[in-house]
Each structure stands twice: as structure tokens, then as C-alpha cells.
């Protein structure tokens, strides 16, 4: 990995547009982090420095934001990261069994990478906002619900 970080030229253009939306530079913090993460997979220290420079704020301010928001990652996850919803409505509809099956199927504990680096998974205590699909999970950004063992087999197979 190189030790410097920069937005791609396309992202630099996008970022200039985003700055115009707000009366302060700092307000572009979350958009900049989303963009850095989309570009790099997670937000490395070099990107923190880069964003601090773009926004004219001390690095510590970027750090603070980075560690506050759970969607911003400080290290790489699997190519396909699976988040199982562990909140109430999903729990009522059997998220516990879904977790057991994923553990069996992927063969790694929560937070760890499969050997091929393709998958990682975790259970989140937050409701993901699709309880009508309970039990559900989020993978590659999108929701998959009404989960069964077969459905999980499919989700994994499609991405293997």
C-alpha cells in the first residue's frame, strides 16, 4: 500500500461540487469520508490526513469523526462484508439461527476473514430498517431478507 492518499481525479471534481452545497468546508466531512471509503475500501491514516488538509481542520477532528461513526472502517473487511441484523424484530423471527448457520457456512468467527479473503461477517445491534424482511442481513450495501438456510447458501454462492 502506498503511504499517500489522494482522491481520483473524478472524485476530486465531485468533491469540489460537494463543497458548494454547504456554507462551511467542514460540513463536507462525512461526504469526504464516504468517498474515501468507497475508493479505498476503508479509511487509512493517510486518508485522514488528506481529508484534514482538504477541509482545513486538525487531523484530530477527522479522527474523532472517524471513530464515532460505525460505518466508517479503519481497516479492510472481506470483499463481501455481511451484517446480520441483531435487533428486536429480526431476533423475534430467528436471527439467532441465521447467525449459527453463517458461522457454520463461512467457518470463521464474527469479525474475521475467510481464508480466501472474500467474506467477513458480524451481527449488529442496530435495526437496519427493513424489519418486514426479518430475519435480514445487509451485504455489499443491499438488503436480503426472509432468510433461510437455502437463501444464505445462495447469497454466498453468488459471490464465491
Amino acid at each position: 500500500m502506498s503511504s499517500s492518499f489522494e482522491f481520483t481525479s473524478e472524485n476530486q471534481k465531485k468533491f469540489q461540487e460537494i463543497l458548494k452545497r454547504y456554507p462551511t468546508k467542514r460540513a463536507a466531512m462525512l461526504p469526504a469520508m464516504h468517498m474515501a471509503q468507497a475508493q479505498h475500501g476503508f479509511i487509512p491514516p493517510e486518508a485522514e490526513e488528506y481529508i484534514a488538509g482538504l477541509l482545513d481542520v486538525p487531523i484530530i477532528d477527522v479522527r474523532e469523526v472517524l471513530s464515532f461513526y460505525s460505518l466508517f472502517l479503519q481497516e479492510a473487511k472481506g470483499k463481501h462484508h455481511i451484517k446480520v441484523c441483531g435487533s428486536l424484530s429480526c431476533w423475534l423471527r430467528g436471527s439467532g439461527e441465521i447467525r449459527e448457520y453463517l458461522l457454520e457456512k463461512l467457518g470463521v468467527d464474527e469479525g474475521e476473514l475467510t481464508e480466501d479473503g472474500k467474506f467477513s461477517w458480524e451481527t449488529v445491534p442496530d435495526c437496519l430498517g427493513a424489519c418486514e424482511l426479518a430475519p435480514m442481513l445487509q451485504v455489499d450495501g443491499y438488503f436480503e431478507g426472509c432468510l433461510t438456510r437455502e437463501k444464505i447458501d445462495e447469497i454466498v454462492k453468488e459471490r464465491t
Binding site: 467542514r26 464516504h34 477541509l55 464515532f68 460505525s70 460505518l71
Partner: peptide, 18 residues
């Protein structure tokens, strides 16, 4: 970016301000 508290209206404003 994954913080429930940003639904609270002033938490939201702080988050909007970066």
C-alpha cells in the same frame, strides 16, 4: 454513517456540520 443518535434533531445538525 451508522449512528442512531444522529436521528435526534440536534445530533443530526452536528452531523450535518461534519
Amino acid at each position: 454513517a451508522g449512528a442512531y443518535i444522529c436521528g435526534e434533531e440536534t445530533g443530526l445538525l452536528e452531523s450535518l456540520e461534519g
